[in-house]
Design a protein around this nucleic acid. Structure first.
Lengths: 230, 230
DNA sequence: CGTAACCTTGATTAAGATCAATTCTCGTGG
DNA sequence: CCACGAGAATTGATCTTAATCAAGGTTACG
């Protein structure tokens, strides 16, 4: 059910059944396959999105073709909401574009589009959403801070090791993680290239901190790994 | 006058004289000299700040002493507001820290401290501030996106050239800019080191795009420079 | 005028990107 | 069920960029 999905989105978690009903009338659902483009940074801004199933990458491409992944958006998280609050007036002009590219990384990636204009009207009536929005942005800012810190203050090996540790904490099950993205994408997210990532994983294996088997990475020596990252 | 200063801060621009008066009663003013620490990332979180005069750098230091500057905060801009909205409950615990370091870059840098607890109370009464806050965060997010893009997709030379162009647009006066920070700090902001920055500026001079005289950089060939950055 | 902070320059090194070639994996159709 | 082909991942050799190390030079300021 559509409104059930909306309810699971943090910024909408304070809305009652009635409001959710109203909201679900203005949204549009779309489904994408692996590799499909959700939007390019050259397209006019329509509104923001929610990932419902699958995975979405938000990325930029440099002029000479280098790609960097800014965010990976998992289910019930929003993306492309920032433009909505930047230039209240410019938004509905045709020249207003998405700030980055978005691509589905899995088959059956379902997303919900919240049209910008209607959402803005809703927002003016409901300040609960606004507070949630600030809080959501704060979380995002913290994430980006961390991302910049990683990229500028750590070498590739430490970034990779750090990523493994973070994923392990998120999964908080066993001592192993299963990558949900390709190693190409992981490289683009960690600010490097597939070849270097491959060599780095091997190095961490040689050091006996992890073992790698396809998409499964097992942490053998947690202390050593933690100690190494700092 | 204190409330005159507060009025110039974007998030407070919707408040009336009365509200400004209330606000000015809970804030604290502090003055710092060049090189003084405003807070370390190890200190308990007290609240957020506004730069009134001077300049403040927000930065991180890696374990091996490498520094990276995340933001440069000029007058009437806020810093360290993000933590306020992240963990509504944790904030007042003693273990809650500032997310980065802050240092004054000029003598007579005056800042205003808005205590977290009191501000949160104010916020609950006034939703105007909340909307401004979202918008302010959106701007910040855009900036960080841009920063990451620069750091990951461009080489040092292009980052430097890009910085010069951006500053020139901001100043929008002549075809020259005057650096308001040391070249050491500029290097730390651009994700490099002083030596490399120095060589890079020379390279851009040799290419006859700019001339450098101390802190003054003049753009000789705007087209070439723009073309180079992309 | 002396000292410290800032900046520049040169020589060297190291990290990671690039280029090129295989190998591996997996979905598809014969 | 196997063969094929495309995309993903790995590996090796080489090259480039920028960091590091070391030494001077400049500037600002007490």
């Amino acid at each position: 059910m559509l409104s059930d999905n909306l309810k699971k989105v943090y910024i909408f978690s304070g809305l009652d059944e009635n409001e959710l009903e109203t909201l679900s009338k203005i949204v549009k659902q779309k489904t994408f396959n692996k590799g499909d483009i959700i939007f390019f940074d050259t397209e006019p801004y329509l509104g923001f999105y929610i990932t419902v199933t699958g995975l979405v990458k938000i990325y930029k491409i440099s002029k000479d073709g280098k790609e960097h992944i800014l965010h990976l958006i998992s289910p019930f998280n929003t993306f492309a909401e920032v433009p909505l609050f930047e230039n209240f007036n410019e938004i509905f002009e045709d020249s207003f574009r998405y700030p980055a590219n978005a691509m589905a990384l899995e088959d059956e990636t379902r997303v919900i589009l919240i049209p910008g204009r209607q959402f803005r009207e809703l927002l003016e009536k409901d300040t609960k959403i606004c507070i949630k929005m600030v809080s959501g942005f704060a979380k995002r800012l913290r994430h980006m801070n961390h991302h910049i810190e990683e990229l500028t203050l750590k070498d590739v090996t430490r970034r990779v090791a750090g990523y493994i540790l973070k994923e392990q904490v998120n999964a908080k099950e066993s001592d192993s993680i299963s990558l949900n993205i390709s190693k190409n994408d992981l490289a683009a997210y960690l600010g490097t290239i597939p070849e270097t990532l491959s060599r780095t994983l091997k190095k961490l294996q040689d050091e006996e901190m992890i073992t790698v088997d396809g998409k499964v990475i097992r942490i053998c020596d947690m202390d050593k790994l933690k100690d190494f990252v700092v």
